[in-house]
Computed example of a mutant assay.
Amino acid sequence: MYLTISPQKTGSSYLQSVSDFVKYLEKENDNYGLEADEAYFFNQDNDGITSLQVITDIDANTKKLHKHEPKFYSITINPSQRELSALKNHTKDLKAYTRELMKAYAASFHREIEGRAITVKDLKYFAKIEYSRSYKGTDKAVRENQKYIAKIAKLKHHIVKIERNEMAGSVKAKQQAIEQARATAPHKLNGKMIEAGMPKAGAQTHVHIIMSRKDQSNRYSLSPGSKYKASTVELNGKLVKRGFDRDRFYQKAEKQFDKQFNYKRHYVEQYKARKTLLKQPDVYLKQLWQMTPKQRALGFHILREAGIQTKLPSIPVNQAQLAAKIVKQLKKGLTRAMRSGSIEI
């Protein structure tokens, strides 16, 4: 599972209203004809929340925030297909999980409100479940198909010029060349070349959470973008706690999912393991190689399902050889996943 937390921006500027983001999250309502319970937003206590209420409440909860400060944060819960297979009902289970997750989110703040710790009741948030994803230009399949996509675009441009008598050539030959490019592209889905915007196959259910920067009272700022885990500073003659413990939040999120759905998380799926790969690749590989052959094979299978291509040696090799053969592949493939282990600001 990958959790991302980010302030919503347009280029270098923060959005002053949540309306565009809400409209983006509403796109599935029309495209997929969702049922009422699936189409609406929800929060800790209520279901069936309309997009208008989300926009009104978030936009009004920005007291004393300046233009250069984020008004809200986007939290995304991205379960893997393997994790989704542990759920009995995607909508009900992820809604229940989100509500437990937000308790952990609140507890990860090193802040106090009137002398007490932050709780989920202090948070103003709205969440929406989505059921599909589309390929983006940054996805491996699209990147590796890109030269074929570019070739096809060029051929189509030539066809237009030929039809306008601006260029000599055969339209039929160009069309055949287009079909050949599509056929030879390395990544396809249901026989079609994968391009940006194409819906992904399989279960793709995930959750978007809109989290107000200010608490329910509109008096206190709660920023998960704080560069501090936990610190105390003197402000106006008073000692004030500040900070957000990202590591604690991500680890509690995993533990909650595993407990709630009796999920047996493999080592390679753990947030802690991804951090180990980044900082101590030799320790990561040693952990993999000390597993039973069945568990080790499962680990590499999970990585491949996530789009990370690795070649598993058929026999044990020394640590240096492992590093040369595998670490480079793993690090390259997990770069995107690593970014979800920290707040992107």
Rank of each mutant, 00 (worst) to 15 (best):
K95Q: 13
L288P: 00
S132Y: 12
D59W: 02
I149H: 05
K128T: 09
D37H: 07
N61R: 12
A181D: 09
I326H: 04
S342P: 00
N318Q: 08
F109V: 10
R99Y: 04
K286H: 08
A203W: 01
I209E: 00
R265L: 09
R296T: 03
V268H: 04
I162D: 10
K238F: 02
L288K: 01
M338A: 05
H206V: 02
A117M: 11
T4V: 10
R213E: 12
P293A: 02
L334P: 00
E269Y: 10
T119D: 05
L303I: 07
Y97Q: 04
L288F: 01
F249P: 01
T292R: 07
H68E: 11
H187W: 12
L285R: 06
M291D: 06
I302V: 11
M198W: 06
H66W: 06
N61L: 14
H68K: 13
H90D: 15
E130G: 08
D45A: 15
S74E: 13
E38Y: 05
Y228T: 03
I5D: 00
Y250A: 12
A337W: 08
N165P: 05
A127D: 01
Y220F: 13
K95G: 04
A141T: 09
I326Y: 04
R265S: 09
A273G: 01
D245T: 12
Q204K: 03
E344K: 12
I302H: 03
G333R: 03
K67L: 04
S217C: 03
Y271I: 15
S17T: 02
T205Q: 06
E35F: 03
Y32Q: 14
R182N: 07
F72R: 05
